[in-house]
Each structure stands twice: as structure tokens, then as C-alpha cells.
């Protein structure tokens, strides 16, 4: 049976539905209205969270202890069971951890084309058309999700969350947990919260942020000098943290923190979509990158291609005197 609805896979903390899920639900409602179908949410874990999903027409709820925290295999089993029964024409997921786990697996198991890294979705009579970012945002691809089913994993912040937050009440379909949840090949050992005690970069008025262009731990010293002169903390893009040069608490971006300082000074950061997700709403963005074609210059207010190793000491001098 083809139900042909637009489905959203909800993410939550156990107590609160995520902002990103409302972004997806808002878009699902818009597509459903255009296509004359309904917006459904697949909700795994605590059933009472359905009360926060008034923006949906239907919530399909699977409540089982194995689903209380996100666990890839458990979620995949539950989702396969729900998809087989509900047969949506399109399912929307976050392009973060959950979507990176499940989207591509479903594409094979549910036999549906997947568009990943999606930043826009529009309904046309014969297809839903998705725009996807590839090559670090340097190229956009317009793709069709045409047939009877499709999957889109959507970049955080692509759609407004407000459109998915509704006060209405929705129908809740209680869905039996699939038997497979009793025989999982993985288990959650512990939930690790971010370390505290370091500076809170989300509270700073100004951030000095460094990326791959810094090219070595030893070079951090000169950037630290600038940050000290300004009296502000250092932050970084993912590669600097992955290399162990700065702690995770300093990471700005999709898998780090979202910041909104009055000024964001960035050195050697090219502006990959994952980083932009965390800083694009800063009030003043000044970017230094030797690649004049770096995507960051489409987002920054001011830019320069001067070598960061020349600029940073010069700027530190200006600040000190």
C-alpha cells in the first residue's frame, strides 16, 4: 500500500525534541500541503514526546527500552518496520550522526534513492527536487527524488524550525516494537557528556578561530598571542581539534558548538558547510585565507588573502599598542 506521506525521523534528548526535527517537520508540512498528503513523524523512545509534535498530522510511535537513547541498529530496525507499514513517499532525516548512520543503509535496505547534504527541497508534480551540497559546498547538485519512495538527509539550519512547531494535537499511532530489538549486535555502554571546566566559547564577544591553514601545533602560539592581546578565547574548526591541538570544547561547527559572537576572526579556515553551520550568524565575520576562491569569502563580511603568518603578528602588534 502506498500511503505517500512525507515522514520525518524525530531526534530527541529523551525529554525534548531537537530543533533540527522541527526544521524537518516544517518542511514536511510544506511539501505535504503542496502534494496533498500528510506530514508524519516517526518517534522512537518515550511516547509522551508526541505531545511536543503538534505540528505533525500523525506521529508513529515505537516505545521500547532499546530505543530510549539513540542506538544505530535499534533505530534502523524500528525504522525499517515503520517504513514497511507506512510506506511514505519521502523520509527526511538530519544530515548529522543519525542521518549519516541510517540514510545510506535505508537506501539499500528500503530500496530508495538517497539525496545527502540537502539544503533545499521543493515539490513538483512528478518529483520532489532536492538541492545537495558536494565538494565542501563548492558545487550544488539538483537531484530528483522521483519514484514512489525517496530519502533526504538535510543539513542543519537549512529550514526554519518555527514552521514545524505547532500547538495542534496529532494522531498517535502506537506501533509494536519489532522482534529484532531483542537480539541486537551492539549495546550502549555509556553516555559521555562534554568535558566542562574549559572556557565557554559560546559566551565570548569576540573569537579568534583557526583552521587547517595553521599547519602545525607549534604555530598556535602566534595565534594565542593575538587572542591574549584581545583578551578573547581561541576557537577552531574540526581539523585542529581532531589533530589534538585544541580541546573539543573549542570546536565550532556541526559536531562542535554553535557560536554567535559580535566578531569572529578566522584564520586558515576555508568555510566547509560543517563549519558554517556553527558560526554563520556571527555579527561580524572577518576571514583570512590565502585561497581567494575559498567558500568562506561568500559568507564573511570582510576578507583578506594576506598570509596568516604575516597578518596575525601585525594585528597583535596593532592591538597591543
Amino acid at each position: 500500500m502506498v500511503s505517500g506521506n512525507i515522514m520525518v525521523l524525530a531526534e530527541h534528548t529523551g525529554k525534548q525534541v531537537s530543533e533540527g526535527s522541527y526544521e524537518l517537520l516544517g518542511k514536511a508540512r510544506e511539501l505535504a500541503a503542496a502534494l496533498g498528503c500528510q506530514a508524519e513523524v516517526a518517534l522512537f523512545g518515550p511516547r509522551d514526546l508526541a505531545a511536543q509534535l503538534g505540528g505533525a498530522d500523525v506521529v508513529v510511535s515505537v516505545d521500547h527500552p532499546a530505543l530510549s537513547e539513540y542506538l544505530p541498529e535499534a533505530y534502523e530496525q524500528a525504522l525499517m518496520a515503520v517504513l514497511a507499514d507506512r510506506n511514505p513517499r519521502l523520509i527526511l532525516m538530519s544530515n548529522a550522526t543519525v542521518g549519516l548512520d541510517l540514510g545510506a543503509a535505508l537506501s539499500v535496505r528500503w530500496q530508495a534513492p538517497l539525496a545527502a547534504y540537502v539544503t533545499s527541497l521543493t515539490a513538483e508534480p512528478a518529483a520532489v527536487v532536492a538541492t545537495a551540497q558536494i565538494l565542501g559546498g563548492k558545487v550544488l547538485a539538483e537531484v530528483e527524488l522521483g519514484g514512489e519512495r525517496g530519502i533526504a538527509t538535510v543539513v542543519g539550519g537549512a529550514f526554519p524550525a518555527a514552521a514545524g512547531q505547532g500547538d495542534g494535537s496529532c494522531a498517535v499511532v502506537e506501533f509494536a516494537a519489532p522482534a529484532g530489538l531483542e537480539a541486537l549486535r551492539m549495546s550502549l555502554q555509556q553516555v559521555l557528556e562534554p568535558q566542562e571546566g574549559d572556557v565557554d566559547i559560546t559566551a565570548a564577544d569576540v573569537l579568534v578561530s583557526v583552521g587547517r591553514g595553521i599547519d602545525g601545533r607549534d604555530n598556535l602560539e602566534v595565534v594565542q598571542e593575538l587572542a591574549d592581546a584581545l583578551g578573547v578565547p581561541l576557537s577552531a574548526s574540526r581539523p585542529v581539534v581532531d589533530a589534538g591541538w585544541l580541546p573539543k570544547s573549542r570546536q565550532v561547527g556541526k559536531s562542535g558548538l554553535k557560536v554567535k559572537p559580535k566578531a569572529y576572526l578566522m584564520f586558515g579556515i576555508s568555510g566547509a558547510p560543517e563549519h558554517l553551520e556553527g558560526m554563520r550568524s556571527a555579527e561580524l565575520i572577518i576571514a583570512c585565507n590565502t585561497d581567494a576562491g575559498a567558500p568562506i569569502f561568500d559568507v564573511a563580511h570582510y576578507g583578506t588573502t594576506v598570509d596568516l603568518f604575516d597578518l596575525i603578528p601585525a594585528l597583535a602588534e596593532r592591538v597591543k599598542h
Partner: peptide
């Protein structure tokens, strides 16, 4: 698996561009 139909690819048109400091 089923494959995706690409309609077109293009380079993003930036809504704006940084004012370059020279």
C-alpha cells in the same frame, strides 16, 4: 541500489561576497 537522477550541477551563487581588505 536505486540511483538518483541528477538534473544539473552548478556552482553556488553567493548571496554576497566579503569586502576584500587589500
Amino acid at each position: 541500489g536505486p540511483s538518483l537522477t541528477v538534473r544539473r550541477m552548478y556552482r553556488p551563487e553567493a548571496a554576497g561576497h566579503a569586502e576584500m581588505l587589500t
